[in-house]
Nucleic acid binder design. Structure first.
Length: 968
DNA sequence: TGTGTGTGGTAGC
DNA sequence: AATCGCTACCACACACA
């Protein structure tokens, strides 16, 4: 159905349909709520207080049915009419409880509450906030704004001002009260008090209202002023602030009772923001933000992208020598955190999150002297040294110092290879070895870094990477070691190497060391000299081979101080050695699920992250591995580490995508399917870890599309509140062009319906066929079913296979390319048999890839990044929310979305439409709750016209597009 | 004999 | 309150044709 300007204009201007219907439902709800509330207030309050100076409860006529204080609460148009106010109140309280409690009951039975629009209200995020704090801040801001509106409303309505009895108080209500929380809320706000919806340390709550407390809460609240609701009522009656002590609920804490002034009270840290469990949309971000290991891996990648250089000047020339500097900070995290906290570095220090079963990321040498090691749990370390000081992570500082480190050294060497945030290999290729020069260079570097970063580094210098590593080991801490043997000095090298421990060698960790010791038992292999002496006879030499051919050969070379092929290529061709081959996300902490849907949601989120990472590096993957950690049968339900994985069985499964892809909607179903295969017959609650790896990566060769659009210049948000500036260069996206495109490319080949396919089998094995059908990915569906289409002439003609050259030329270049591509796909599909598609070898791989990999992105106002697009749309909506969208802007948006449909950009379409729905819904409920006051029987002037127009745009034009996505 | 899959080890703090 | 046990890469054993 083509859309045109008049069409849109008409629908935006007419106010009939939505206006009346939504209005009706609101009216009905309000009146019901009103009625029941009057009843409610008289019935439930034993002694209706006569409030001479303040407000009466009946004057309030609270409408719990309308979500005044919780404007994104349950949809009232469906619930309000049939629910009485008490239930409604409970519901609100439920929602409220959910909002600030950190329990694991967030999920409802059927679905993940975070994603069910009806149930997720407590955690719905109307905008994409960067973090939970931002979200909360915004929420609190909105709530305060609502309070202000309320006051204005009442003052206008009753034509009086309310005495500011509760000025300078900040009140939080806990649990069920009488009068209800909402009634109290209004009373407090009207009389000048501040009302806190949450009990966070930032809000500085002065009083808590409660009628009874659980024993746990009694302890938790013992430092607060906990007061009974009568305090509010009688204070209002007395028209002054009565002594709260007379109404105190908890009488045991004398300290607080003595304080009479109402200032802010130090709230307990324990009531901080709720913890994010793994079902929270922000869990991944919050986890990664705090994970040291995640930081380490990401940093390595970033630093290599930024600071690696390879310039092996005549590295293979005989006369050119190679000097390898292995530079490494001493106990990096511990040193930096120690500096940040002004700790004395001679005292034992360790960096960790927690106190008990928390990993020590790094400890200084003072701590090591007690036997404390990195990776040890704090509890054990404290046993070894009770005075151990635990410092928090300072990720920003680590990264900053690392940046300085590489910047300072970059120009000093021919080759720079970052290996970690604090550790790198730096190589010079001099013609002659100048021992004095080398040691001076070491000292210079150490001095330079010490003054610039206040940290000490150690340096190992040699002519092979192994020897450099070993030199570094002996140089630590805070020193440097140069060992540059001549070719003839084999014995000296062997002696040097022999003085180290087994695990000092690269690629030998504790497991391999144990294995070696087992091989040679009963003689214990502690030092490399032990190993060297054991290798003299052939039989014992052969023992080493049990480690595996590759590793044993490596070790033999290392024992002679020589590099193996790995090390050599690492040094000589670092860009090749470190080229990206896989991409993965591993989560083995905080994984606690109750339902399979939660797992699916989680996988969706992980895959979405991976997909966007892939896109950002312009790559696609054709193979995935999903790895699960399940707690072992006999191990305790909860491991010692809080939310840890404990002892687990680990299983994995690899699978392939139908072709190289970086699309969310292709990858996610495939991976979930593998998850189902892998996770058989076990309670979902036993899942402790999930890891998803994408491999077989391929770079997108078709760079021109991406580079044609200069992404860097696209961030400016000028010309607002207009959605698109009225500049000539934006004109190409006009009606006629789009409509032409519409005629040219009829439909992108989408999934044919499965119904026909399955009819035959249904009788035989119904369950199985459904199972089979369900487990297919959309992409595979398409490939598998395509041939059927081909056999139907009608379906074939559905695709127009010729391009209208003239029409094409009028389109912008990007679009021309897109369309040509689309035609290439259609033609290829038309000419390909199913068997060929299933056996990719028969088709040239390149052709196959062009089908579902690297479909060029569709720009919106030159933006490609979904987040940028939604950000722009958000601004647009916000600035036009009260007066409605401009017709041409709305048109532009709808056209864009239609193109997404057309080019089968499902994930993008879903993302944007969902986002728009969320946004508009948010504003609608905001204005509704603000204007929905029973005192004003007509809501018409309260609700801005604009919001109705937005609603109409959404409901009539945008949401249908989402539904059309599955239409062939 | 080659190919693919699942498992397990290592590195950084 | 606790706690943030990642991630890229290689090598091997084994299964299968």
């Amino acid at each position: 159905m083509p859309i045109n300007e008049n069409d849109l204009e008409l629908f935006l201007e007419s106010t009939s349909i939505l206006n009346s219907s939504s209005q009706n439902s609101i009216d009905k709800t309000t009146s019901n709520a009103e009625l029941s509330n009057i009843e409610h207030s008289t019935l439930l309050i034993p002694q209706p207080p006569l409030l001479k100076t303040g407000t009466t409860l009946s004057e309030l006529k609270t409408q719990e049915g309308n979500d005044y204080c919780n404007h994104d609460s349950i949809n009232e148009t469906e619930e309000g009419g049939k629910t009485d106010s008490i239930k409604q109140q409970e519901k609100n309280d439920d929602a409220f409880e959910k909002m600030h409690s950190n329990n694991n009951n967030r999920s409802c039975n059927k679905n993940n509450s975070y994603f069910n629009p009806m149930l997720q209200s407590p955690t719905r995020m109307p905008q994409r906030y960067n973090n939970y704090d931002e979200y909360m801040e915004n929420k609190i801001f909105q709530q305060n704004k609502n309070d202000q509106k309320l006051i204005a409303e009442y003052e206008k309505q009753f034509n009086k001002t309310y005495p500011q009895i509760f000025k300078n108080t900040n009140i939080y209500i806990n649990g069920y009260t009488n009068p209800t929380r909402l009634q109290l809320h209004k009373l407090i706000v009207l009389h000048g008090g501040k009302f806190s919806h949450y009990l966070t340390s930032k809000r500085n709550v002065t009083h808590i209202i409660a009628t009874n407390l659980t024993s746990k809460k009694k302890i938790e609240f013992r430092k607060y002023r906990v007061v009974q609701p009568e305090w509010i009522m009688q204070s209002i009656e007395a028209n002054k602030l009565l002594k709260w002590q007379d109404y105190a609920l908890l009488l045991n804490d004398t300290n607080i009772n003595n304080t009479t002034d109402i200032k802010t009270l130090v709230t307990k840290d324990s009531t901080k923001k709720p913890h994010l469990d793994c079902n929270h949309p922000d869990f991944l971000a919050s986890f990664f933000k705090n994970s040291r290991l995640h930081h380490l891996t990401t940093w390595k990648l970033e630093l290599q992208n930024k600071h690696m250089k390879s310039n092996p000047v005549g590295a293979h020339h005989n006369r050119i020598k190679k000097i390898i500097y292995y530079i490494d900070f001493d106990c990096f995290f511990a040193t930096v955190s120690g500096l940040k906290h002004n700790e004395n570095s001679s005292l034992p220090i360790a960096v960790s999150h927690g106190q008990g079963n928390s990993d020590i990321a790094s400890c200084n040498y003072a701590a090591r002297s007690f036997g404390i090691k990195n990776g040890m749990w704090v509890s054990r370390a404290k046993q070894l040294c009770s005075t151990l000081k635990i410092l928090p992570y300072e990720f920003d500082s680590y990264r900053k110092i690392s940046e300085t480190f590489y910047e300072l050294l970059y120009d000093k060497f021919d080759t720079v290879i970052p290996l970690s945030v604090d550790e790198g290999v730096f190589i010079d290729y001099p013609e002659d070895i100048d021992y004095k020069g080398i040691s001076e260079k070491c000292m210079d570097i150490r001095n330079l870094l010490s003054t610039k970063t206040k940290c000490t580094v150690s340096i190992g210098v040699s002519n092979t990477l192994v020897l450099s590593t070993l030199c570094l080991k002996s140089a630590k801490p805070n020193g440097f070691k140069i060992f540059l043997p001549h070719n003839t000095e084999k014995e000296a090298v062997a002696k040097f190497v022999g003085s180290f421990q087994l695990t000092d060698l690269p690629n030998i960790g504790h497991k391999t060391a144990d294995k070696i010791n087992e091989l040679y038992s009963p003689s214990s292999i502690i030092t490399l000299a032990d190993l060297q002496s054991n290798l003299s006879s052939l039989s014992s030499f052969n023992k080493l081979n049990k480690l595996g051919g590759k590793l044993s050969r490596k070790i033999i070379l290392y024992l002679k101080g020589e590099d193996d092929i790995d090390n050599i290529s690492k040094i000589n061709t670092p860009f090749n050695y470190f080229r990206k081959k896989s991409l993965s996300v591993d989560i083995n902490w905080g994984i606690r699920f109750q339902t399979i849907e939660q797992v699916y949601n989680f996988i969706d989120r992980v895959v979405a992250r991976l997909a966007s990472q892939l896109k950002s590096i312009n790559m696609a993957s054709s193979q995935y591995t999903i790895k699960l950690a399940r707690c072992k049968a006999n191990s305790p339900i909860e491991p010692p580490k809080y939310l840890g994985m404990g002892l687990c069985d680990i299983t994995s499964k690899t699978g392939r995508f139908p072709a190289h892809t970086n699309e969310n909607y292709i990858m996610s179903p495939e991976i979930k399917q593998s998850f189902r295969k892998l996770y058989i017959q076990a309670p979902i609650s036993s899942l402790r870890g999930i890891s998803i790896t994408l491999s077989n990566l391929k770079t997108n060769n078709d760079r021109d599309i991406g580079s044609m659009l200069d992404r860097k210049t696209n961030n400016t948000l000028d010309n607002f509140p207009r959605l698109h500036p009225p500049l000539p260069h934006d004109v190409p996206l006009t009606m006629s062009n789009t409509e032409n495109a519409d005629q040219m490319v009829t439909v992108t080949p989408l999934l044919p319906s499965n119904d026909n396919n399955n009819n035959n089998n249904n009788n035989n094995n119904n369950r199985r066929s459904i199972e089979k059908r369900k487990s297919r990915s959309p992409a595979r569906e398409f490939f598998n079913n395509y041939h059927k289409k081909k056999n139907q002439e009608r379906a074939k003609h559905h695709f127009s296979t010729e391009i209208d050259e003239n029409a094409l030329k009028e389109l912008p270049l990007e679009m021309q390319k897109e369309i040509q591509r689309e035609y290439a796909v259609i033609n290829l599909v038309n000419s390909t048999k199913r068997s060929a598609l299933e056996a990719p070898k028969i088709i040239p791989k390149k052709k196959l890839e062009s089908i579902c990999c690297f479909n060029p992105p569709i720009p919106f106002q030159k933006l490609l990044n979904p987040k940028e697009i939604t950000a722009r749309l958000d601004t647009w909506i916000l600035q036009n929310i009260e007066r409605g969208p401009r017709t041409d802007d709305a048109l532009l948006l709808v056209q864009y979305l239609r193109r997404l449909v057309k080019f089968n950009k499902k994930s993008m379409l879903l993302y944007i439409v969902d986002h728009l729905e969320e946004q508009i819904d948010y504003y609608r409920s905001y204005y509704r709750s603000a204007s929905d006051d029973p005192q004003t029987s007509s809501n018409h002037h309260q609700m801005p016209d604009g919001i109705l127009q937005w609603e109409k745009l959404l409901v009539l034009k945008i949401l249908p597009l989402r539904e059309s996505k599955n239409r062939a």
